[in-house]
């Protein structure tokens, strides 16, 4: 079963699947947790695509394309910094989120 997650907050009590079951697999992606972040991972050094960051990221927020590091999913990265810790080349810096946002603007 698929549902329109956008409307879920307005569901009447009898519209919820019984037992608070979530009947659509993988829909956690609709819940954006990037807003929790105070530190942002940023690739500043040289990356050799060992992909330790991808293995360790608890939110699958490291994007990999063609077996190569391709950036961070900032909609879901909570800024925990594990990627930065496990990076063998110390290539990932955790920078202040607010300053990064100001720079983005």
């Amino acid at each position: 079963m698929k549902w329109n997650i956008e409307g879920a907050e307005g569901w009447k009590w009898c519209e919820h699947p019984a037992g608070a079951a979530i009947l659509e697999a993988g829909n956690a992606q609709y819940y954006k947790t990037g807003g929790w972040r105070t530190l942002r991972p940023t690739l500043e050094g040289k990356c050799n695509n060992c992909l330790q960051c991808w293995i360790f990221c608890p939110d699958t927020a490291v994007i990999v394309e063609d077996e190569k590091f391709a950036g961070f999913d900032l909609d879901h990265c909570k800024g925990c910094g594990i990627c930065s810790e496990v990076c063998a080349l110390k290539a990932i810096a955790m920078v202040d989120e607010q300053s990064a946002q100001e720079e983005d603007r």
Binding site: A8, A20, A21, I22, L23
Partner: peptide, 13 residues
């Protein structure tokens, strides 16, 4: 038919 049971439920639900 994969489902999630026992998930977190916030005040809207």
């Amino acid at each position: 038919n994969p489902v999630t049971l026992g998930s977190f439920s916030l005040p809207p639900y």
